[in-house]
């Protein structure tokens, strides 16, 4: 008797098959990605041709300024999705991020109006944002609650606290920092646009240029593999939620500067933030969320709203188009994956 169990030897044909399959998969992914990007490009081209003033420098800078708040929030969301894995039901998500921004804005504006200086007020806003993030981290990492549910509950807490603080009113605010953010400009680019540029650069370098970012992707992509490589998965996941809270606080300062006040209703941004982070994956070769991809989709969403405005199309379409785009991208992606015959 020579062997008790068959040693599995892959034949030539199988290796070729596997190679062909993987080539086919890569091709399919490429088609999906290029298709999605082409769709984005077509929409942009349409605006360039038909929307008056779309390409003017003034208009484009305006779009970048408008996108700053969404962008900063979307980076936080992207980090959470990277670290938690992109399985939406089980994986990382922070539904509380927009409500958290509203709460931070309320704290910031209220403290300013009570006469505390910029420094204290900014610090308080950042502390509140990171505390909410830490609460999410505790719920998700410490207690093992599904991120979807944990952050949904925290959303309510944060939104309720904002309302309690402001009594659902507009809290006006002004300060030297806000003055700079509103009217400051360097090299012809406004401070708000600079904020987005600098924040984007930092996020892209940290997530895509450091070993920290590399490990973060490993934690989200295959937690067991990360653990086997000696990486502390709980630390990285917790970090993303706290970072997300920090992003909410930064965005809150930008939003207060843009409106010269904290206003209710910031929670409505959540859908756009989710859309930006999810749409961003099509810009990535690996179909993972990336900071660069998120930036592109944030700008795309900004240009979409702007183009509609210039074409006199009702802004009520924007949400629906975003929803349809998410469904389209996800359906095509799942179709491309499904055609591998994994099922």
């Amino acid at each position: 008797m020579s062997a008790t169990v068959l040693h599995t030897e892959v034949g030539v044909s199988d290796e070729k098959q596997a190679a062909a399959k993987s080539a086919g998969r890569r091709f399919g992914a490429l088609v999906v990605r290029l298709g999605a990007i082409a769709a984005f490009a077509a929409i942009m081209a349409y605006f360039v041709i038909f929307a008056p003033g779309f390409t003017s420098t003034f208009n484009l800078i305006n779009v970048v300024e408008q996108s700053a708040i969404l962008g900063v929030l979307a980076y936080g969301m992207t980090a959470v999705i990277i670290g938690g894995g992109s399985d939406v039901t089980e994986g990382g998500i922070d539904l509380s991020i927009a409500a958290n921004m509203g709460l931070c804005a309320a704290v910031y504006a209220t403290l300013l109006s009570m006469g505390y200086g910029d420094f204290l007020s900014v610090m308080a806003a950042i502390a509140v944002g990171m505390a909410v993030g830490a609460l999410n981290a505790l719920a998700v990492v410490g207690l093992g609650i599904l991120p979807l549910l944990a952050t949904l509950a925290v959303l309510n807490v944060a939104a309720g606290m904002e309302l309690t603080l402001t009594q659902n009113t507009v809290v006006g605010a002004s300060s030297p920092l806000l003055g700079v953010l509103v009217s400051g400009s360097f090299f012809g680019i406004s401070a708000l646009a600079w904020a987005l540029i600098v924040f984007s650069a930092v996020m892209i370098v940290v997530v895509h240029g450091t070993s920290f970012g590399l490990r973060l992707y490993a934690v989200g992509g295959h937690p067991e593999a990360a653990r086997a490589a000696g990486i502390s998965v709980p630390f990285y996941v917790s970090f993303t939620y706290v970072l997300s809270g920090f992003c909410a606080a930064v965005a809150s300062i930008l939003t207060v500067s843009r409106l010269s006040a904290s206003t209710p209703g910031s929670g409505e941004l959540l859908l756009s933030v989710l859309a930006a982070a999810l749409l961003g994956t099509v810009f990535s070769r690996r179909f993972v969320p990336t900071m660069g991809g998120t930036l592109l989709s944030v700008l795309f969403i900004g240009l979409l709203a702007n183009g509609f405005q210039l074409l006199n199309v009702s802004s009520y379409w924007v949400n629906g188009v975003q929803g349809a785009l998410i469904l389209l991208v996800v359906a095509i992606t799942s179709f491309a994956r499904g055609s591998e015959g994994s099922r």
């Binding site: 039901t89 009520y316 949400n319 629906g320 929803g323 359906a331």
Partner: peptide
């Protein structure tokens, strides 16, 4: 039919429903 996860599918419908 399109194999979209329930979370994303119903999120998309939420967007579209609000617009509508």
């Amino acid at each position: 039919r399109l194999n979209i996860s329930p979370f994303l599918a119903t999120l998309g419908v939420l967007f579209i429903g609000q617009s509508t």
